[in-house]
Design a protein around this nucleic acid. Sequence first.
DNA 1: ACAAAAGTGTTTCTCATACACCCATGT
DNA 2: ACATGGGTGTATGAGAAACACTTTTGT
Lengths: 244, 244
Amino acid sequence: MLSVREHVLTPTATLAVDVVVFTLRPDTVERAWQVLLVPRPDPWSISRRALPGVLVDEDETFDEAARRALLVKTGIDARDWYLEQLATFGSPTRDSRGRVASISHIALIQSDNIKIHPVETDSPAEWCPVTAIPWSDLAFDHAAILREAINRVRGKVRYAWVLFQLLPPIFTMSDLRAAYAAIRDPSVLNMSTSNVRKLFRRLIDDQALVAVGKRAEARGRGRPGDLFRFDGPLTGTWDRELPW
Amino acid sequence: MLSVREHVLTPTATLAVDVVVFTLRPDTVERAWQVLLVPRPDPWSISRRALPGVLVDEDETFDEAARRALLVKTGIDARDWYLEQLATFGSPTRDSRGRVASISHIALIQSDNIKIHPVETDSPAEWCPVTAIPWSDLAFDHAAILREAINRVRGKVRYAWVLFQLLPPIFTMSDLRAAYAAIRDPSVLNMSTSNVRKLFRRLIDDQALVAVGKRAEARGRGRPGDLFRFDGPLTGTWDRELPW
DNA sequence: ACAAAAGTGTTTCTCATACACCCATGT
DNA sequence: ACATGGGTGTATGAGAAACACTTTTGT
């Protein structure tokens, strides 16, 4: 790796972090899964939206920088959110102002937890359904970052417990199913409730899913579902990949 | 992300790439899966082994830098090898000479394809079984990189076609099984040949696995296996995760 | 009363594992 | 001849999907 002769290295690049913040919001199945985009009011720039991001400070880890980016751009304390490194984008030509490597991250949050009130800019960040992303309107290579982030989450939802990162602390089986439908495949909504429950039975047996013992409040028609609480490690995985 | 006022950015970091090169070599199941390590002959450095890596040139992509690292450290043209970005390690304290971000990569190769004759250094790189890695003897945070690389490949082998990257162009079912055993779980060697074939039946039906029509040459005792050729996209995935 | 959503139980079918048997090679 | 490894076929069992039926809500 590094040539060991030199005792000091002359910096040649700038480090940045960009964060793809995902959430689930009450909306149609197609629009429920949403991502946080920051408007760029600069009149001279062609692209008018970007992912929240900052330059990495001298003595800052990437994780710290990513959480600071969210604090600065949305005004919310991101200390406890799930955050994972996605990939690093650093094509020599991606930024005209010099070589910038963007260490992109994925954050998963419960939308209840956010009230967006930006600190640094006057234009607040906005939620955007992943099915309605203005691809051609994104700054830098943020379209590529976003595409990879979406693929990563879509893949991970089948074997890791990402759903529980996005759902509120208490939820019903329908919520769980709807979350999966929004991210991965709406056709699971056709599945019978019976079969859905059977798939989560092992989680219940393992005490990872705990029945709260109460019913949800009625939401329009139909019988309200039983409430559950997730009580497992949020970074855990399913025994086997979900069959859907 | 970047503050758009500035028109030039002052570099604050150095970019490096490190590559975890995996291969399969003829050895016991426990030792078949191996990784490439570069000796560091410097007498004053405590750690005496490292991953192959270089500093990223000004007008170079990470992919290009990674392949160059292999060329320089092992003397082999890595143009066609499978290469994937793993993660970026850039703790502010990882290198005493300044802030260095290492964009680590994973490379998968067929060991037949390599003759190691290093260009830059006089000490040639060496293969090391992943079960016998000198963890405490690795430079920088290369132990952490290696750990993540191993986990990534171990996980990916169940749903992606990484095995076919590591196997020679023509192979038998036993080779396939042995490859999986070396990376993931030796207990598959106890499985009956019948069941192994059934798991690959879908691949054969889909023309991704093609029977060459010949037998392998005898290797010691027992009937030699039928030969197969892989004829699918190397970046493809299994329909469902392998059950093992 | 009825439609809509949720919960329970049973049936069916797919597929992974287990097992029994045949084939080809080296000693 | 026989031990060893590879190939073919069938049986068994777990689990996913399909289906029938009951329970709870709003209109």
